[in-house]
Design a protein around this nucleic acid. Structure first.
Lengths: 160, 160
DNA sequence: CCATCTGACTTGGTATTTCCAATTCAGAGG
DNA sequence: CCTCTGAATTGGAAATACCAAGTCAGATGG
């Protein structure tokens, strides 16, 4: 079940991240969680995912520290589990937001955007951008992705 | 082959985007393309993906306007195809960058980051952040994802 | 020309993953 | 007990990915 542990451990951040949220439904669960959903039945209804994979994905997201499992009890029901974003899970908001921005720009839904990102204080629209070490905004055309310390890009099949 | 066209067309931007780059290998191909790779053999070597699915993914990325197919000819070889990012494809750099940032922060590779994002002019590190309508940086804790015009979040299984 | 080489696909068979329906399971309540 | 409800599991069908081998087109070379 777990692509969470592989041999050897990949160094590419994209591969590492996809190992955590790259399986089908995983990122949509995170999106739903960011929308405030916490329960199995809520995810099930809003996503329409099969219950067996939903069950598996929730477990795997808990295992990788994206969600945290808590117990809750509704009056007249037995104890059940709810799933809450951890700090790491909330951190994925930027990734989701980048996806929203990208899609609005390059593949907008005819009915208009399903979600938008706003400043919680005033409701103003917010977008994702590149920021330098100071608070300066850097134009997307001026940034480049270059190898880091752990990066051997030229290697074959190891950049995974 | 094509999840590119579905019934009905999903309004959630995340679903729409995953329909384009959510299949296995797709986003890694984009990452490689951002690193400057353009040829089938280059993708094949650096990714280690099976040639049949690499072939299918390249075709599907071309079809959805992320990559553009061009012909090239190496001295002493027959004409072949190379794959270049379109504007939409280059736009995915922000998404990739957000993933890099997230992974560095919450799941860093023991050997150090495989890639980093820099300002091309001075090589300084650059990060992904939220930006308001002016050039003001908005703290991640102060942003919220809310329904847009096309968003009926409460609905069941339609938020797909 | 016919044979051979090389890189880019295809193909055929197997393994893995997802899907779906039906079932089980754990309590709560009658 | 018997039933109800929501979460999780099971078994089998379908889709997807994987792997090795084969094709195919055009260059090179006898």
């Amino acid at each position: 079940m777990s692509p969470r542990h592989r041999t050897p451990e990949p160094q590419c951040q994209v591969v590492r991240t996809l190992d955590i949220v790259g399986e089908k439904w995983s990122l949509l669960i995170v999106r739903d969680a960011l929308r405030g959903r916490t329960r199995f039945s809520e995810f099930r209804h809003s996503l329409g995912a099969p219950s067996d994979i939903l069950s598996a994905r929730l477990a795997s997201l808990v295992e990788s520290g994206i969600l945290e499992k808590r117990a809750y009890r509704e009056a007249g029901s037995r104890e059940r589990s709810s799933y809450h974003l951890t700090e790491a899970g909330r951190g994925l908001q930027v990734v989701i937001a980048a996806i929203l921005d990208w899609n609005d720009r390059f593949d907008p839904a005819p009915t208009g955007p399903g979600s938008k990102i706003v400043d919680a204080s005033d409701g103003a629209l917010v977008h994702v951008a590149f920021r330098g070490n100071d608070e300066r905004i850097v134009d997307a055309d001026d940034v480049a992705i270059v190898p880091g310390e752990g990066g051997n890009w030229a290697e074959s099949a190891v950049s995974r």
